[in-house]
């Protein structure tokens, strides 16, 4: 235990030293979007698929949509998804589309402060320009709520925000989703939903000590889920070994019911209730097809 603590401390020192090199200025970098008019309906659908609503709404306590989420307990500390309503003081009502795009693509606030990767911007950076404009249009329709966002409660050394630019330099790849021409349209739609919008790997891929995804074990399941427990492996092999079919997966994402008659719990229950249960049959089939055949 002491060793682990020392190790962490060492890491923190190295991280801090590196941060001096990488970025001390916290300057917001410009973002260019090739889209100005967003489609509200598409954006709302995408907000469901991407978990914006699930994470930023405290459904259990009857919280207003996007007015701030319930605590998310992780091995790094407790995160609270902030108020994303159009309130100018407490929400993001004074943001521009460019500010919004910068948050999703660079993981930084309008004044250049880095966000914790609990906000899965390393996935959202794969969204298209039009996706971001659509989301922004949908966010405009949500009533403003003047509720202050909660402070993040992280343990040392993760409470040192100046370590975040290092994290971003290591793990944030500012790349859009790319269609694989070798694969079917349905497979590509599934890949886009899984790898960009729905960010399945955020929970189903284990993280290293610094909270970066361990790509060698992509979708292999992970410990330390919010509220305890572990997420199951959802690699194509694991799913097949456990007897899943594409239809079963699509149905589980709609209803929560597994082929065995169990009903999924943990944070997946929230993902289904506030996210995937709203998706079209075609999209659920695409997600399932992609996961069952992912290479």
């Amino acid at each position: 235990m002491k060793k682990a603590l020392l190790y962490l401390l060492g890491l923190a020192v190295i991280a801090l030293a590196l941060c001096w090199y990488i970025d001390l200025s916290h300057q917001a970098r410009p973002v260019q979007l090739d889209a100005d008019t967003g489609n509200v309906e598409r954006g709302a659908y995408l907000a469901r698929a991407s978990g914006c609503i699930a994470c930023h709404t405290n459904v259990d306590e009857g919280g207003a949509p996007l007015a701030g989420g319930p605590p998310i307990d992780t091995p790094f500390g407790t995160f609270y998804a902030p108020n994303l309503t159009m309130d100018k003081e407490q929400g993001i009502g004074d943001w521009t589309l460019e500010d919004f795009a910068r948050a999703l693509r660079h993981g930084t606030s309008p004044d250049g402060q880095p966000y914790y990767p609990a906000f899965p911007y390393s996935f959202y950076t794969r969204l298209s320009d039009q996706d971001i404009a659509d989301l922004w249009a949908a966010f405009q329709t949500v009533p403003a709520v003047a509720e202050p966002s909660k402070q993040q409660e992280l343990s040392f050394p993760f409470n040192i925000r100046s370590g975040l630019p290092l994290w971003q330099a290591l793990y944030l790849d500012d790349q859009r989703f790319e269609v694989d021409p070798q694969q079917s349209e349905q497979y590509n739609r599934g890949a886009y939903l899984v790898e960009a919008a729905a960010h399945c790997a955020a929970c189903h891929t284990p993280r290293d000590l610094l909270g970066g995804l361990d790509q060698k074990q992509a979708m292999a399941g992970a410990e330390g889920m919010p509220g305890g427990g572990r997420s199951p492996a959802i690699t194509a092999n694991a799913l097949k070994e456990n007897g899943w079919t594409t239809d079963d997966l699509a149905y589980a994402l709609r209803s929560g019911i597994t082929p065995e008659g169990d009903v999924l719990g943990g944070s997946m229950a929230e993902v289904i209730r506030d996210g995937t249960s709203f998706l079209t049959d075609d999209d659920l089939q695409a997600i399932a097809l992609y996961l069952m055949n992912r290479e």
Binding site: R230, G256, V263, L264, G265, A269
Partner: peptide
């Protein structure tokens, strides 16, 4: 189904 899910979400720890 939804009441199974609500209960599992709050009170069951998924271990596998």
């Amino acid at each position: 189904t939804d009441s199974c899910s609500s209960c599992h979400r709050r009170f069951r720890e998924d271990k596998k």
